[in-house]
Design a protein around this nucleic acid. Structure first.
Lengths: 361, 361
DNA sequence: CGCAATATTGCAATCGATTGCAATGCTTGT
DNA sequence: ACAAGCATTGCAATCGATTGCAATATTGCG
């Protein structure tokens, strides 16, 4: 009676093969059973052959491999993962602000993406890139709950500390690129923002600047910590904070332009700018020129990130380097630890002052 | 008698719940059967409820949804897709050169990634980002054959015209960002490189330049076509081509530096550069300064891409804009057409000369 | 109150691969 | 020539959800 069943199955599977998707109307997908039939063996043998099990005869394996290759057959990963309960997909999430519908443009973030992509590829993970509404971070959890991804890398914590804590409490394997914050339950990897802010500011002070403007969005933890470093440096060198010099600008090129114009219009004196990203710094420099202020002579500028273009800018940009290549690997390593059940400790990557020309010699 | 079976099922499902993955040793994943048991209904009902079928009682649906929400249960997408034969995953492939193990750094490519990510998100596709060895493009086909992705977007055709044709012949749904070539079986979306090259060169000629250097890797179709535009402009204005001015440089910042140095060292006279990317243009400008050549006065420069930083560069960069936001949408639209069985026509997106300062006023 | 029509729910097959166990064939020793 | 042992192969259950069909509950109407 297995025969009867087999006979039933054949037209049945044929029927099914025609309907699955009208999307791909032409040739419905090859499956293991097809290979098995053509090779005159069972699917079990095909499965073992293609998975290089020692249980199949070398000649058989060779024949099956040949056949599969010639028909461009690959094991259906969906079915395989389903059966095995496996999954090597990591979701990389870039929150976006639904209000501004802001696109992904900052070279640093984009570079981070590249770095993570490389690190994941090296470890044999698949990378699912997701943009999610920054206000609906719980959809991030769904990526995990639904088994779409086994772990999540979030680029930028923005203002969502609490939601991230909730994620961690729900045991969603997640690693965040961002700042270390008090009472944080999730794992962050980030550069040492306080040190970076301090380095930048101290450097400006040491080269004789007194009125140092700060450009950055202090609503974001990373920028806030850079600001903290800025304050630390001021206080160490006994320079009084001038709040009018601290401008909260989002990480958008245009906003730096506006910030510089505003300072000038209000005739606030400043002889240096510490900007929270190279993009902001470069934009600021460009705007300073429009305002007929000489970079270095009138105003020194230090950026943050050290994107590739920083060194080719004119004048070459003094900046704080974030080790972007390390970043991808560190994020992935931490996530793997978490996936293995360990508790990954937050990690601060070293920042480094790269002195070029925008801060004097 | 369903009772007896139910009782059997419980320890069974419990047993299963413990083994699937030691990776996530804590709480093995919730599944539909768990929800069903807790709600006192069958999995069929849970499935229908969570999929908003009209076949379930509103009260029941509400109860089940509540339960699922409170337990953070999401339908297992893998199993669902498997059963349904569905899949909304598009693979975005960025080939990399295994020799240089080159990272993803060019802002334009990165920007393209962002643009595609947005376009795919808008259409409800998942985006699988893959880096593959440029010499093993057939692994790209596997992404499709194995059902991992239903379609593929390839960024950059590099030197792989033939392999791409093979892909298309195998009926792999693929769209390529790149140049249109003769006898091409696959669909490309790209900017009008010939027109772009022509615009850039003509502009330089019209502003009085005679010795225009070309920087770009003519082994790549896109750059080759820009070069073609360059030649067209020269010939239109009866300027003789000087081969010494045509430098084949890969799309790497460092290579532009070297190219400029070389020209100077060989004392080849040039009064303009048309570079095949903004990154190259900016690097070239920076190097010109090192060589004590004045940008604009001695050498005018036109770039290609119009990345965001181009306008904030100093001097603001004259360049050819590639409509990057359009690009993502166009690629996705074309791929969708192909997936629906249509034959997507290659598409040339318009390029535009953006005159700023590096080419004189 | 009884029966038909309708609204809900459950049963069980199914998607494509993997794998424990049983079955078969072949080799070898005696 | 036969049994034991090993090498291959096949059978059939299984992963977690979906869905056609059957079964049951509810409602409406005469």
């Amino acid at each position: 009676m297995p025969h009867a069943k087999t006979i039933e199955c054949m037209p049945n599977s044929t029927r099914n093969k025609l309907k699955p998707q009208d999307v791909n109307a032409s040739a419905s997908k090859l499956q293991m059973a097809d290979i098995a039939r053509l090779a005159g063996v069972s699917t079990a043998t095909v499965s073992r052959a293609l998975n290089k099990s020692a249980l199949v005869n070398d000649a058989t394996r060779e024949r099956i491999e040949q056949l599969a290759r010639s028909l461009n057959y690959s094991i259906n990963v969906g079915a395989k993962n389903f059966r095995l309960g496996h999954n090597r997909t990591i979701a990389v999430v870039v929150p976006y602000d639904v209000a501004t519908r802001q696109h992904l443009t900052d070279p640093f973030f984009l570079g981070m993406l590249g770095s993570i992509a490389d690190a994941l590829t090296d470890r044999g993970f698949d990378m699912l890139l997701s943009r999610v509404d920054a206000d609906k971070l719980d959809t991030v959890a769904q990526l995990h709950d639904s088994g779409r991804a086994i772990g999540i890398i979030l680029i930028g914590q923005w203002r969502h500390h609490d939601q991230l804590n909730q994620l961690a409490q729900r045991n969603v394997p997640v690693v965040v690129w961002g700042a270390q914050l008090p009472r944080q339950l999730y794992c962050t990897i980030g550069s040492d923002n306080v040190a970076g802010g301090f380095l930048a500011t101290e450097h400006l002070i040491k080269t004789g600047r007194k009125c140092i403007a700060f450009f950055g969005d202090v609503n974001l933890p990373e920028a806030a910590q850079r600001f903290e470093g800025y304050l630390k440096a001021l206080s160490k060198y006994k320079i009084k904070l001038d709040k009018k010099l601290c401008v909260s600008v989002p990480f958008l090129a245009e906003s730096a332009r506006k910030a510089v114009h505003d300072l000038c219009k209000q005739q606030i004196h400043f002889d240096a700018i510490f900007a929270c990203s190279d993009l902001l710094a470069m934009t600021a420099i460009s705007t300073l020129r429009d305002e007929h202020l000489r970079v270095v002579d009138d105003v020194a500028v230090v950026g943050y990130d050290d994107i590739e273009l920083a060194r080719y800018f004119h004048p070459p940009l003094t900046t704080i380097r974030q080790p972007i290549d390390l970043a991808g690997r560190a994020l992935v390593e931490a996530l793997v630890e978490i996936l293995e059940g360990a508790q990954a400790a937050p990690r601060l990557l070293p920042t480094q002052l790269i002195v070029r020309s925008t801060s004097g010699m």
